[in-house]
């Protein structure tokens, strides 16, 4: 059971980890993380906070770019190359194919995010040589990773029924809205119209709330040193991803490839 899904996931992992674009983005991200030490020297007070802030921002930004632009091609590329026919002609249920593709990319993103977090941790430790290091960097990076997993699931969902360009637009819109849902709730409540307030609430609770994965600020102040902070966001991510992937499986199961 699930061997089909694991085979697809392993194959997707191998395929994405060999992607040259991924390495170009990763190289640029590592370059930016390295450059943060020069920017930190322009500051005063706690200089090392600039390294953590801008380093985590790089991991976040480049992670989103990777998740969106690789995620949107996960399913559509298989359809364009016709390889989907070969896979689905084998005893692999369609839902296992969709879940396997998402799982494979999540594994790649996990590895890349962890690698970037280790580099940032080392750059930060080197910058604060002889002083305490900041393990909260890994907690904040785990929060970023959870956001990337959610975006990957959304990208996979969109790629089951629309073109890569539209998938990218939809996923990036979800990224934008996911960070401003609280503002929408606030403005909905301020509008005075019950319909707007209701719509604001509906958006707030139904669309992804990506701010709950944001631990960058607490990490900088040494307040994110416990993995228990991640438990509720993890539950939220698993629940939301399950809903999105189930919808993706339903749509993909009904897709006609003729």
């Amino acid at each position: 059971m699930l061997t089909g899904m694991l085979s697809v996931a392993a194959n997707t992992f191998r395929e994405t980890i060999r992607n040259k674009i991924l390495y170009a983005i990763l190289a640029f991200a590592l370059f930016v993380i390295g450059m943060t030490t020069f920017l930190a020297n322009l500051s005063f007070g706690d200089l090392a906070r600039v390294v953590v802030d801008l380093g985590l921002a790089s991991i976040h930004l480049f992670g989103v770019v990777m998740a969106v632009f690789i995620g949107i091609t996960l399913v559509s590329q298989e359809i364009d190359r016709k390889t989907v026919y070969i896979i689905l002609s084998k005893p692999v249920p369609r839902w296992e194919f969709v879940l396997g593709k998402a799982l494979g990319l999540c594994a790649t993103l996990g590895l890349i995010t962890f690698f970037m977090a280790v580099v940032l941790y080392l750059v930060h430790a080197g910058y604060r040589y002889g002083q305490t290091t900041e393990p909260g960097i890994f907690v904040a990076a785990a929060g970023i990773y959870m956001e990337l997993v959610l975006l990957t699931c959304l990208a996979s969902f969109f790629s089951t029924f629309t073109t890569p360009v539209l998938s990218a637009i939809f996923t990036l819109s979800m990224f934008l809205i996911g960070h401003i849902t609280r503002e929408l709730l606030f403005f909905g409540g301020k509008s005075g119209s019950p319909a707007a307030a209701w719509l604001g609430k509906a958006i707030y609770y139904l669309l992804p709330n990506l701010e709950i994965f944001n631990f960058k600020n607490v990490a900088v102040y040494g307040l994110a040193r416990s993995a228990s902070l991640l438990l509720l966001p993890l539950a939220y991510m698993l629940s939301y991803c399950a809903a999105v992937l189930l919808l993706a499986c339903v749509i993909f199961s009904r897709k006609d490839f003729k």
Partner: peptide, 23 residues
């Protein structure tokens, strides 16, 4: 004035504005 519009990059924005203030 609405920091969530920084899309999760509030700290990076604070630092960049702070660097401008120091100059």
């Amino acid at each position: 004035r609405h920091p969530s519009l920084a899309l999760g990059f509030q700290n990076a924005c604070a630092d960049l504005v702070w660097l401008g203030a120091i100059q």
